[in-house]
Simulated assay, not measured.
Amino acid sequence: MLALAHQTGIRLVVAAGLALAAGAPAAALAQSGHGGYSATLAAPLPAAKKAVLNGVIWKCDGDSCAAPLDGARPAIACAKMVRAFGAVTRFADPKGDLAAEDLARCNAAAN
């Protein structure tokens, strides 16, 4: 009886640990704000806007935009995003912000 209670206790601890581990990526995304691309528009939009670019949905509200990763290089994703929403002052993926010269080339795509 005691051995059965011990096994049941171990199963509960393992199940709880797995549940916490499964929720960890979602919690990390919530804390970081986003796990994909993010951008700050040079001029805020008057109303929220969505667009499908390279197979993913970009959502912009005010001057903040976000989308899941689409597999494209950040500079390519930035250029497509700028054509749809306008110039940006910041563009980032989970690895970090685009360099200033890449951001300038990205914004040139809007013209």
Results as ranks from 00 to 15, higher is better:
L2E: 15
L2M: 07
A3V: 05
L4D: 15
G9H: 09
G9C: 14
R11A: 12
A15D: 07
A16K: 08
G17N: 11
L18P: 03
A19D: 06
L20F: 08
A21C: 10
A24W: 12
A24T: 08
A27H: 09
A30R: 10
H34M: 02
G36R: 14
G36E: 09
S38I: 03
T40E: 15
A42Q: 01
L45I: 03
L45F: 10
K49R: 13
K49P: 09
K50N: 11
A51G: 03
A51V: 13
L53W: 09
V56K: 13
D61I: 04
D63M: 04
S64L: 08
S64A: 09
C65F: 01
A67F: 05
A67K: 04
A67G: 11
P68V: 04
P68F: 08
G71E: 10
R73W: 06
P74Q: 10
A77K: 00
C78P: 01
C78Y: 00
C78W: 00
C78G: 00
K80C: 02
A87L: 04
V88M: 02
T89F: 13
T89V: 12
P94W: 15
P94V: 08
G96S: 14
D97G: 14
D97T: 10
D97M: 14
L98G: 01
A100S: 13
E101G: 08
A104I: 02
R105H: 12
R105C: 02
A109M: 00
N111P: 04
N111V: 02
